[in-house]
Design a protein around this nucleic acid. Structure first.
Length: 139
DNA sequence: GCCAACGTTGGC
DNA sequence: GCCAACGTTGGC
């Protein structure tokens, strides 16, 4: 199963709002970047991802699960843009900060470090396990 | 709030 | 198809 990372500014759409959506989940809409879209199209039902707070917070705060595969983004009529639905699975026991990730030699290849602006990123299985361990949270 | 880095757009 | 100009993102 593949792993991912979703970025959001907590002022716009934060972890608390995601949790409030419960099992139904929520459309991960508004993404207007091809690379991010390609990643979403590659997602399968049940894939899991990290939920990261950008701009303020700068930490991974929880785990989410894909609960609907790519479909038309309801916020636009443009057929180029589609998106998945995600739901909150569990919060991190200890949030993992960007600083921690940058300081960990095992995590230097993470997209979060290398391509800071990509808002939907793939995460390798190895990185997944390391970050979960740092957060004292089961994968 | 600033600004560097990056992605996208559009004129040629 | 190139590249300058522009807009947006995100770390600080």
């Amino acid at each position: 199963m593949a792993h991912w990372l979703f970025k959001s500014e907590p002022d716009v759409w934060g972890w608390d709002k995601q949790v409030a959506k419960g099992e139904a989940g929520e459309e991960w809409d508004g993404v207007r970047n091809y690379q991010a879209h390609n990643n979403m199209r590659a997602m399968k039902l049940g894939d899991r991802g990290f939920f990261y707070h950008s701009r303020s917070g700068l930490e991974i705060v929880g785990i989410v699960e894909v609960c609907a595969e790519a479909h038309q983004d309801s916020t636009t009529d443009d057929a180029r843009w589609d998106c998945v639905d995600i739901k909150a699975v569990r919060p991190f026991e200890t949030p993992v900060t960007l600083t921690q990730i940058k300081e960990d030699p095992r995590l230097q290849d993470m997209a979060l470090v290398k391509s800071a602006r990509l808002s939907v990123q793939p995460v390798t299985d190895t990185e997944w396990d390391i970050v979960c361990a740092l957060g004292n949270t089961k994968p």
